[in-house]
């Protein structure tokens, strides 16, 4: 049976989500997306630059991907709700990644304001995925408020430092009924693989792919890492032990056992 990600009423083939910021060019981003075939692609919403004719990013996103706007730039729930409504009016569906940040140094999310935005937007029929610090109580509240998934951070946005929050994310993966999608900070395919091995439903990667010397090949590497990690999780990882346990038989050695 095919292993699909059930999320927001959809069955999604790929457990890799890709963000579209920081790519050297839209055509290169398009190639990376075509190679990685992410289930969901994120975008942001900004004021148009009235002085220049910018290219439309949506033309470079494969039609097979679900498009999800984020609410980046929001400093509180009201601003996130405003951005979400604008994004929906942009005609790209009702998937929204809630991102509420007041901390400009580490870009860590404000879980309380995020929860308020989840409550409002879920009631309005949005498919809501909150970006959050990995706190179990808050994650439960997000799901109770209607979040379709929770998106705990691995490490600060764009830091490429990997899953520094591992212990807490693992708890979420075990305890939260909704999909747990690790977002932010994943720097290498092995980081993504680690998340999948521990039972997370998916990962969202942007910077590590976008700023790689070769984003297209890096996108493929992440895709393969996510598949490998997911397969390992489904196969059931062997538990780690402190001593040794021989892999080869301990009998029939070519030596004289009597001496």
């Amino acid at each position: 049976m095919e292993d699909l990600l059930a999320l927001g009423g959809r069955s999604i083939k790929s457990r890799l989500l890709i963000g579209t910021g920081k790519f050297p060019s839209y055509p290169l981003m398009q190639k990376a997306l075509e190679v990685a075939q992410p289930g969901i692609v994120t975008v942001a919403l900004r004021r148009v630059d009235l002085g220049s004719q910018a290219d439309n990013i949506l033309e470079y996103v494969p039609k097979s991907c679900i498009l999800m706007s984020n609410t980046s730039g929001a400093r509180n729930a009201d601003e996130a709700v405003r951005i979400a409504r604008l994004a929906k009016a942009g005609g790209q569906g009702n998937w929204i990644k809630i991102e509420v940040i007041q901390d400009n140094k580490y870009l860590l999310p404000d879980n309380l304001e995020t929860l308020k935005a989840v409550e409002i937007l879920a009631k309005e029929g949005f498919i809501v995925l909150p970006y959050m610090s990995p706190d179990l109580s808050m994650a439960k509240r997000m799901v109770d408020a209607g979040a379709a998934a929770v998106m705990p951070l691995g490490s600060p946005i764009g830091s490429n430092r990997g899953v520094k929050t591992r212990e807490l994310v693992e708890i979420l993966a075990r305890e939260i009924k909704a999909p747990v999608i690790v977002d932010a900070g994943l720097g290498s395919p092995s980081d993504a693989c680690e998340c999948m091995e521990m039972g997370c439903a998916a990962v969202l990667v942007n910077t590590a792919i976008a700023i790689a010397r070769d984003p297209v090949t890096m996108a493929r590497a992440f895709k393969e890492a996510v598949s490998a990690g997911r397969a390992a999780y489904l196969a059931g990882l062997a538990s780690a032990g402190s001593g040794a346990s021989a892999s080869s038989p301990l009998t029939g050695f070519l030596r004289d056992e009597t001496r």
């Binding site: 963000g19 579209t20 910021g21 920081k22 790519f23 981003m29 994120t42 975008v43 942001a44 919403l45 900004r46 004021r47 148009v48 009235l50 910018a54 439309n56 990013i57 949506l58 706007s69 984020n70 980046s72 604008l86 994004a87 009016a89 942009g90 790209q92 946005i157 977002d183 932010a184 969202l204 942007n206 910077t207």
Partner: peptide, 25 residues
């Protein structure tokens, strides 16, 4: 919505925001 743009006559002190999608994570 786009269909309603012609119906809105702008007045002094009006606030207008025009946004579009850009790359983001």
């Amino acid at each position: 919505s786009k269909e309603d743009w012609p119906k809105i006559m702008l007045k002094d002190q009006d606030m207008i925001e025009i946004v579009s999608f850009v790359g983001g994570g």
